[in-house]
Design a protein around this nucleic acid. Structure first.
Lengths: 162, 162
DNA sequence: CCTATCTGCTTGCACTTTGCAACTGGTTGC
DNA sequence: GCAACCAGTTGCAAAGTGCAAGCAGATAGG
């Protein structure tokens, strides 16, 4: 990434997240709960290259959007978690999804989750963020799982598709 | 830009807008009301190169985010306007600004406008979008100018700064 | 008229980033 | 001890970015 261009909030956000992969990685960790390198590499529909994934993970950890921990069950496994800073991207990602859903040729099964999040409004986003804090920061759970609801809607849409 | 990767709304939005300059151009047209090539080239704090600006304008017109019209007062002047599709990016840009303001080293004078938009909430965003429709799509005005309010706040912050 | 300036770009070139495929050194389960 | 798995790395070609200079046509002033 280039050196700092200006103190404009939109520009700075773009400097941090404005490339084709950073937010895809965050999306997969956030909505797909993928926490290991191999999961992120193999499972995303977009097929990120391993060198780019490695680079993005490194940058995101440096930018304090992800944290990296070792898995006690396996000496080579790394667990990537969202930081609070990344969890606060939820409203931004929802807006991105909302705009894409309205204006771009999205597929049904990839947008049911977005639809739920849009309909739920800020209250649902907050509940989702609390759940992410439980999952990634170890904060005790507060309410029922939003992620489970999203996953269920996605799987139903997949089943309908055939 | 690469060929289509997946039907995910977030991914498609990223494919359309996920580079370092597209949203900067839209921001300058939207908040700075810059409508000509030279205005966009010279005035932004980030200093976009003219070839990249030309390329982005072309892509954005092709993506139906901008429209290009000739200026009747000057046969070589082109006027760029936001389309409805681009006007609907307002909530996304506000969220980007909000996140940047909270987590990145923004400057005061570049963030007063964002602050107003955040405080105003969805009602103010709607009023702003209506004003953009008046300015860019020729829809008759509905209410008092949000852009004027934002500009005033920015100029006050600049004056305070010295 | 003639010239200086302004218009939206284009060109050439160096540099950086991306994308693909194969590969690495180490770990684990059987 | 061996196959499968782990998080990456390496080499290389292609694409994208950034800078400086330049361009033809249009306009404004004298």
């Amino acid at each position: 990434m280039t050196a700092q261009r200006s103190g404009c909030p939109i520009n700075l956000t773009l400097e941090t997240l404005g490339d084709r992969w950073s937010l895809i990685v965050i999306r997969d960790i956030m909505f797909g709960n993928r926490r290991h390198f191999r999961e992120l590499h193999g499972a995303s529909d977009e097929g990120i290259a391993s060198n780019i994934l490695a680079d993005r993970l490194k940058r995101l950890v440096e930018a304090d959007l992800l944290s990296r921990a070792e898995d006690p069950s396996h000496k080579q496994k790394a667990i990537y978690s969202l930081t609070e800073k990344a969890i606060q991207l939820v409203p931004l990602l929802v807006q991105m999804g909302a705009w894409g859903r309205r204006h771009l040729p999205v597929s049904r099964e990839m947008s049911v989750r977005q639809e739920l999040l849009e309909e739920g409004g800020p209250a649902l986003w907050d509940a989702f963020m609390d759940e992410l804090r439980t999952l990634h920061l170890g904060v005790p759970a507060k309410g029922p799982s939003v992620l489970a609801r999203l996953r269920q809607a996605y799987e139903e849409a997949l089943a309908e598709k055939g």
